[in-house]
Simulated assay, not measured.
Amino acid sequence: MTGKQFTSVWTREPRPARSPGRSRDEIVRAAVELLDAEGLDGLSMRKLGAKLGSGATSLYWYVANKDELLELVYDEFWSGMTMPDPAEASWRHAVGAFARGLRQLILRHPWSVGLIGRTPALGPNAMGITDSLRRAFKLAGFAGLEIDYANTALTAYVFGMTIPEVAWNQAVAEHSFDRASMVEAVATAAADYPELAKVIQEAEHADPLAVREMAFSFGLASMLDGLEARLVT
């Protein structure tokens, strides 16, 4: 038995524009603007067509369906990633810049969380940054499959730290939580755990954004320390 044939918008040449000023790139840029404003649930071919001043039907000349549009949008997301040339910077500097850049990119475009792991990353921007990251690990001294294992470990760390942060930011924005009441609720829940209660009290006046940044940096340094340790064993 054979499964459904896998297809991708990146496996064929883009169709030429049907009208002056209209192109696939223009459609993708408009889709990103719509996603930034309304999130994944707010993106539809009808809304996109209206934003572009054309009917949804005309968009299907450029993309076969919404899934293909999301493939294009996902690669546009990756176009926002840059990192130092692995041949000109230390591998820790290059890899660290990748990790910090990816976190900021996800926070800037929270809708990307819904595409990570779900939408194929086969476009030139995604492939290019992946190749650069692999080269950084190869120049560090990793070889064979360990290059990909290191790559996976790093991106999993970034996703694991950032995706819950996006979810919390969205929850706070959606419910308009008052910070003081949140701190009070957590302190009440931790009343029977003196060490936790002390930490919560100490963090009451801390800048949450700065705390998250420091937590991410600490974890990233620890991750890179662990990867570096594998190179000397």
Score class of each variant (00 low, 15 high):
residue 214 M to K: 13
residue 223 M to I: 12
residue 72 L to F: 07
residue 192 D to W: 03
residue 134 R to W: 03
residue 216 F to G: 01
residue 202 E to H: 14
residue 62 Y to E: 03
residue 82 T to V: 07
residue 143 A to P: 00
residue 112 S to Q: 06
residue 163 I to P: 02
residue 54 S to G: 05
residue 23 S to I: 04
residue 47 K to P: 00
residue 45 M to L: 14
residue 76 E to G: 03
residue 39 G to A: 11
residue 142 F to R: 03
residue 71 E to V: 05
residue 196 L to E: 08
residue 165 E to K: 03
residue 141 G to R: 02
residue 202 E to I: 10
residue 18 R to H: 12
residue 93 H to V: 15
residue 58 S to F: 06
residue 118 R to Y: 03
residue 199 V to G: 08
residue 223 M to W: 04
residue 121 A to N: 02
residue 176 S to M: 09
residue 193 Y to R: 14
residue 19 S to M: 10
residue 108 R to G: 00
residue 206 A to R: 13
residue 199 V to T: 14
residue 198 K to W: 07
residue 54 S to R: 15
residue 164 P to S: 06
residue 39 G to F: 07
residue 7 T to G: 05
residue 133 L to Q: 04
residue 135 R to A: 09
residue 76 E to W: 09
residue 17 A to N: 08
residue 125 N to D: 12
residue 193 Y to L: 12
residue 211 V to L: 13
residue 36 D to Y: 05
residue 81 M to S: 02
residue 155 T to I: 15
residue 171 A to K: 11
residue 189 A to Q: 14
residue 142 F to P: 00
residue 28 V to G: 01
residue 197 A to Y: 02
residue 76 E to S: 12
residue 163 I to Y: 04
residue 227 L to R: 05
residue 19 S to C: 05
residue 31 A to M: 09
residue 27 I to V: 14
residue 149 Y to K: 10
residue 206 A to G: 07
residue 193 Y to K: 14
residue 231 L to P: 07
residue 199 V to Q: 13
residue 224 L to C: 11
residue 8 S to K: 06
residue 167 A to W: 12
residue 138 K to T: 13
residue 26 E to F: 00
residue 205 H to I: 09
residue 225 D to E: 15
residue 181 S to R: 15
residue 83 M to D: 02
residue 96 G to E: 08
residue 84 P to A: 07
residue 177 F to M: 13
residue 107 L to K: 00
residue 73 V to T: 06
residue 135 R to I: 03
residue 138 K to G: 06
residue 126 A to Q: 06
residue 79 S to C: 04
residue 71 E to C: 06
residue 215 A to K: 09
residue 226 G to V: 06
residue 178 D to L: 11
residue 186 V to T: 08
residue 38 E to A: 15
residue 193 Y to T: 12
residue 103 R to C: 01
residue 196 L to S: 09
residue 139 L to C: 03
residue 26 E to P: 00
residue 54 S to L: 13
residue 180 A to V: 13
residue 134 R to V: 03
residue 169 N to E: 09
residue 132 S to K: 13
residue 93 H to K: 13
residue 211 V to P: 01
residue 19 S to K: 15
residue 30 A to C: 05
residue 88 E to V: 07
residue 78 W to T: 03
residue 174 E to V: 02
residue 8 S to H: 06
residue 226 G to A: 15
residue 27 I to W: 01
residue 88 E to I: 04
residue 177 F to E: 09
residue 150 A to R: 02
residue 104 Q to S: 12
residue 82 T to I: 01
residue 80 G to L: 00
residue 146 E to K: 08
residue 197 A to M: 02
residue 58 S to V: 10
residue 196 L to Y: 05
residue 213 E to H: 07
residue 39 G to H: 07
residue 127 M to N: 09
residue 140 A to Q: 03
residue 224 L to I: 13
residue 76 E to Q: 12
residue 180 A to L: 09
residue 147 I to W: 00
residue 139 L to N: 08
residue 140 A to Y: 07
residue 65 N to M: 05
residue 231 L to M: 10
residue 180 A to F: 02
residue 205 H to G: 09
residue 115 L to V: 07
residue 27 I to S: 01
residue 170 Q to H: 12
residue 124 P to R: 11
residue 107 L to Q: 01
residue 14 P to Y: 04
residue 75 D to K: 08
residue 72 L to W: 02
residue 123 G to Y: 09
residue 146 E to C: 01
residue 107 L to D: 00
residue 107 L to T: 00
residue 27 I to T: 07
residue 192 D to E: 13
residue 209 L to V: 14
residue 64 A to F: 04
residue 191 A to E: 14
